[in-house]
Simulated assay, not measured.
Amino acid sequence: MIKKLLFLCLLMLATSIAAQTVNTVTIDWSFNSTPSATGNTKSSRTIEVGDTVIWNWYSGGSHNVQSTSTAKESFESSFFTQGGTFSKTFTQVGTNDYICSPHRTNMFGTITVVAEGTLSIASFDALGTISMYPNPTDSKLTIDFQIQNTEKLNIKVFNLLGKEVLTKQISKNDTSVMVSNLNNGVYIVRITSLNGENSMTKRFVKI
């Protein structure tokens, strides 16, 4: 009975998010993480409502992520060393200053959240279609795509803590991603072109 109820809950969750497209931003969190840094180390980003920021602890030492008193949304991670991750999904328009509390003069940034649809994000929408099924699934995902001048795509799967749990390159002749070894739950799938210029993020439920 409990298993049936759990299945129904996951099925309802999958139905509500199956068609949802979300975006994630990754920040490599280290002593070099400032608003003026480049690449993934840059700590100030602009995102849309509903987007998720994932901080990856990128160097030695013990650090945390903590919002300041003026931030629109409150968040605080535990202290981690290299390899740790923390994620936050932002739901309100506004400005969110944050710091590493022991190193606030060296590690700080701002997450600016704007209304959904405000940013011009390079996605696959104008180039073709991507479909992912079944959702939920207990063993295998199929990711079919019809994209202009595209024969292969990179696939990365993350859990809701932002940890990468699976990676694969798919092609038109190999569209299957095996997920049978994953724990039951909700996962984020990041689909990117080989040149990194286009991306799409979806979610699925493993049962």
Rank of each mutant, 00 (worst) to 15 (best):
R45G: 01
T46S: 10
I47P: 05
I47A: 08
E48T: 11
G50Q: 12
D51Q: 06
T52A: 09
V53F: 03
V53K: 03
V53P: 09
I54N: 10
N56C: 02
N56A: 09
W57E: 14
W57F: 13
S59H: 05
G60W: 13
G61L: 03
H63S: 09
H63G: 11
H63N: 14
N64M: 04
N64G: 12
Q66T: 02
Q66A: 03
Q66S: 04
S67C: 03
T68D: 13
T70N: 10
A71R: 05
A71I: 04
K72A: 05
K72L: 04
E73P: 09
E76R: 02
E76K: 04
S77I: 00
S78T: 11
F80A: 11
T81A: 07
T81G: 10
T81Q: 08
Q82K: 14
G84D: 08
G84P: 12
F86V: 00
S87V: 01
S87A: 10
K88N: 11
T89Y: 06
F90Y: 10
Q92W: 09
T95N: 10
T95E: 15
T95F: 04
N96P: 03
D97C: 07
Y98D: 02
Y98A: 00
Y98C: 00
C100V: 00
P102V: 07
H103F: 15
H103A: 12
H103S: 11
R104P: 00
R104T: 10
R104V: 02
